[in-house]
């Protein structure tokens, strides 16, 4: 899987490299490589599935396609709260699979060159699933490591 973050030393090819989709969980700002995001949809009715991990909220119908949705809060071990009209589902393409991520709200798209990225603090519990950190204006953005984030779920799909 080509990781767009690491190939960024060249000029951006399609306008997607070096750009990050920012979203909020509580007051923390998180980022995702924009190249992975397919679309953002508002929260809709989710069909619950039995026997799945608690952060797998179920499946939704995206124009006839059935995609699984995961709650980022639950996955990060944060307390869950009711979905409201700011809650969004970010649809990602990871290993050619579509997966939805439920986040509190989507804020903006930001650019960050590779040299602006800082490694996350080590040995910190808060740094789970964080690939890098960068600063934008007065905000600290935590970049989600999607490979790591989905690691538990992806293992079984590679048969």
């Amino acid at each position: 899987m080509a990781n767009t973050e690491t190939t960024a030393n060249s000029v951006s090819i399609d306008g997607l490299t070096d750009r990050y989709l920012l979203f909020k969980i509580d007051d923390a700002n998180y980022g995702l490589p924009l190249s992975l995001a397919i679309e953002i949809i508002t929260i809709q009715s989710i069909t619950k599935l039995p026997r799945v991990a608690s952060y797998v909220k179920g499946i939704v119908n995206l124009r006839g396609k059935v995609i699984p949705v995961l709650d980022v809060r639950a996955k990060l071990g944060l307390p869950e709260h009711e979905y409201d009209d700011k809650t969004c589902i970010i649809v990602l393409d990871i290993h050619d699979m579509h997966v939805g991520l439920i986040v509190d709200m989507v804020s903006e798209v930001a650019s960050a060159l590779p040299e602006q990225l800082m490694p996350p603090p080590k040995n910190d519990k808060a740094a789970t699933y964080i690939a890098s950190v960068f600063q934008k204006d007065d905000k600290i953005i935590l970049n989600l490591d999607c490979e790591d984030f989905f690691k538990d779920d992806l293992e079984q799909t590679r048969v």
């Binding site: 599935l49 039995p50 026997r51 799945v52 991990a53 797998v56 499946i59 059935v66 995609i67 699984p68 699979m97 579509h98 997966v99 538990d152 779920d153 992806l154 293992e155 079984q156 799909t157 048969v159």
Partner: peptide, 14 residues
Amino acid sequence: PFPIFLNKYDLKNH
């Protein structure tokens, strides 16, 4: 079929 993302949970056998 269920998304292959959910293979882990083996819903087919349940």
